[in-house]
Design a protein around this nucleic acid. Structure first.
Lengths: 338, 338
DNA sequence: TTACTAAATAGGAGCGATTCCATTCTGATG
DNA sequence: CATCAGAATGGAATCGCTCCTATTTAGTAA
């Protein structure tokens, strides 16, 4: 059995460097400048030979600075969420924070548990892409002084910054593009909007915008379990409007994926029947003749969320981002050329 | 200003319940049964009214049980990594652990930093999808007694369980399928194998297997920055073997994506020129006539990694998984029907 | 030189839990 | 009734660090 050398502590470093705990602590905290150059080198050397690294648990305990940010993601397998997580993680590192991620799989119960857990780890801030409506818990957490930023979706009655897409503008751009391309009847496809304020908002904007433009329009909610229902609804919509140019607008990446599959099963000609989606995906350029999308600036969104959070954690050192709602980018492809 | 109620501590609960810290600690630890029923209810009640939750930082400090598992991912935007992360997270929760994820973006330097950070948080175990070769650090960490499990890729000279695909079998299945379908010349496309033992292994298996089957074969390494080089190489290979049925085998999802794009740019007829990839992706069924893939059991892989880890953390309560190399599933589609 | 100020360093009390060890409380046994 | 094992509970040290409060040192002006 090889002996298991306990990792060395601040005291051992102090002893070896001939200094006090305090000085070593200062060295590894952010008061290094207060130490004389000679002491700095002695400590650096001692720490290096011992392979010392401060125990974050102990730090977090005493100072309350866990240097941890918690993130809750509704569906980690959604490429959009992943892209945002990437931005969040990047920004965290930039500020010297680590990220504790919880995936809730769109389950409010898991969300509850994860939220409790994260706060038990004394996270200094929380970035939340809500699955349910964890109002109560968020209130508690916020009341305890933990800054919270919401990602993409807002939560009823919770007064926290929301970073995400400018949904109004997005839907508007989509409708504008579709009308420009000569489509006259548009079917809007979304997952059930109960869970998500964003879905609700986009849906509302769609109805409103389509009406303003005097478009023939209808909406279709995806039923996860029952493909054929959706298939029929789609089929019917197209059939009912044979005399018009029809298009389908998908509310997010999942919808785009589902609908593209159905287009193929129905043998619908992409372009002739328009197809457009919010969220850019790897493969949208691969399905001939390419699927038109509105790309979200995911990295920006993720990073902004963290900037926002850091502003709340350390108001004086970090500026508050001015923009929280980002404009999408229209990527035109063949699927919207009749 | 609303006052900020510090979260309540074990002492307050103890006081309110008329018990000692020790008892409360026992209640929230795993010695609840040792307490008399009456005490249990008193503590439960007190904890509930105070909204008490043990401070994980403090727990981690004293007992060394941070209940944290660290995970390092080479590229979090790779759908394969995401799928595995999902499995890992699920299994962690099952064991009552939380997951601290670090994304290294395939950068050895970031890998180093993240590794240091994770160990600073006293993670009880580490799941690593290596980007570079952090041998030294892993040795240190392992020597300190932290169990390590490697995901998908092994690291030189590091003696830890590796959970992943049975690469030999995978490449074999691919070649078998391609030959069955009548392809005679196969081009193997991979990202540069230096970083990844898996890429090396697959490449080797390919050369070996192709030779055994007396296939005409060649390999092509993707150069991230230079598309046209790859384009030309692909084009040349096809041209050079006009008289044979050609196919391309992609080493992973990224390769499949890149090559599919090139097929379109070159106007290559999918199927006539075969295309097959390791890793199943959302869109493989969407690009007509569908791309044949070998799907990895990602959830299994992720979960097994954690089972493996837990076995090392608590050898007596958890069995060691017997299988660490998983067989892929062949998903036949039109891209391999000449 | 002396007095005084500011900079540099040290000492020690906790942070909130766990855990060893001691104590009290049962009830069964002789 | 005395004794004692074992269960139930409590006390206090401790984990590694931060930060408040000394104390020492150096630097400057009178």
């Amino acid at each position: 059995m090889s002996s298991t050398p306990r990792r060395s502590t601040i005291i051992e470093v102090a002893r070896l460097a001939g200094a006090s705990k305090t000085s070593v602590s200062r060295y590894f905290g952010d008061e290094r400048e207060r130490l004389s150059p000679s002491l700095q080198t002695r400590i650096a050397q001692a720490a290096h030979t011992l392979g010392y690294q401060p125990n974050q648990m102990a730090r977090g305990l005493k100072g309350g600075h866990s240097k941890l940010v918690g993130m809750l993601v509704a569906d980690i397998r959604n490429p959009f969420s992943v892209a945002i997580t990437h931005g969040v993680e990047q920004a965290c590192r930039q500020y010297g924070y680590s990220l504790l991620v919880g995936n809730t799989d769109n389950d409010p119960e898991q969300e509850r548990q994860h939220l409790a857990l994260l706060s038990a780890y004394q996270v200094e801030g929380l970035v939340i892409n809500a699955a349910g409506s964890p109002e109560r818990q968020l209130h508690t957490v916020i009341h305890q002084g933990t800054p919270v930023v919401l990602l993409d979706r807002e939560v009823n009655h919770v007064d926290a910054a929301v970073v995400g897409l400018d949904n109004h503008q997005a839907v508007d751009m989509a409708l504008e593009h579709l009308t420009e391309q000569g489509y006259q009847a548009v079917l809007y496809v979304s997952e059930t909007p109960e869970q998500s304020s964003t879905r609700q908002l986009r849906l509302m904007c769609f109805n409103q915008g389509a009406q303003q433009r005097a478009l023939i329009h209808a909406t279709l909610l995806l039923t996860p379990s029952d493909d054929t229902a959706t298939l029929n609804a789609l089929d019917t919509f197209i059939a009912d409007h044979k005399q018009h140019n029809c298009a389908v607008l998908c509310a997010n990446g999942n919808a785009t994926l589902a609908i593209t599959r159905l287009f193929q099963r129905l043998g619908l000609p992409l372009g002739k029947v328009g197809l457009m989606g919010i969220d850019e995906l790897d493969w949208c350029c691969l399905v001939p003749p390419g699927i038109t999308t509105l790309a979200q600036p995911t990295d920006d969104i993720g990073q902004t969320a963290i900037h926002c959070l850091m502003h709340q954690i350390a108001p004086h050192t970090t500026p508050m981002p001015t923009q929280l709602n980002f404009a999408p980018t229209l990527i035109k492809r063949g699927s919207t050329q009749p």
